[in-house]
Nucleic acid binder design. Structure first.
Lengths: 98, 98
DNA sequence: TCCCATAGTTCGGAATATCGGAACTATTGA
DNA sequence: TCAATAGTTCCGATATTCCGAACTATGGGA
């Protein structure tokens, strides 16, 4: 879980939005449920790539449940290792988006 | 001053190291003074590019003083806009580097 | 003034990464 | 076994990054 990977993962607004969705809603979402960012549809190959980047950065964990993949946020683990980082990043995006 | 630009700028360990140097030492450093990261020399064209990325992200300000360029950290301005962000990122790198 | 040294920037091509459509794989239910 | 759903992988187009070489800008002598 390297800081550069985390920052890189979240330096893409689309991935940041996906991660916000995943960590917001009870920490579980199938990929197809995050396929819209704003009013823009994300092609599924791109979505798959984004999910992979988030996973490899250690930000989410993915489990197959039947035919779908569930994405769990790993906020608390990240926060334990890098206190305040997630919160600061997400609130920066929230502030800028507003 | 967009969060994605800040995260992108600092998602490169070399740039993060350069920024740490600039914001550490009294907030002023000529480019040539940050040309070493660890024991690795940064080619000056790359350094110039890195400085530009940091500048465009709003993380530093550059002023020409005679023949040299002085780089000032804009920590406090960034912190005012996105509280805790800089500190969290730099401390994450510090922790990971150790 | 002219030339040189110093400090950065810009150019350009090679290496690398990203995006997204099309084809593929995995799982479930009929 | 077949069809449908959910993701992944492949691959070509595009965009980014890296860095050496050439260029620009400033100041200090002779």
């Amino acid at each position: 879980m390297r800081p550069e990977a985390i920052l890189h993962a979240l330096s893409d607004p689309v991935r940041a939005a996906i991660f916000t969705q995943i960590s917001g809603q009870g920490c579980v979402q199938a990929c197809s449920e995050v396929a819209m960012v704003g009013d823009k549809a994300i092609p599924k190959s791109s979505l798959s790539h984004h999910i992979k980047v988030l996973r490899e950065a250690g930000l989410i964990r993915c489990e197959r449940h039947g035919v779908e993949m569930r994405n769990h946020s790993r906020c608390s683990e990240v926060d334990q290792r890098f206190p305040g980082l997630m919160a600061a990043i997400l609130s920066a995006y929230a502030k800028a988006g507003a």
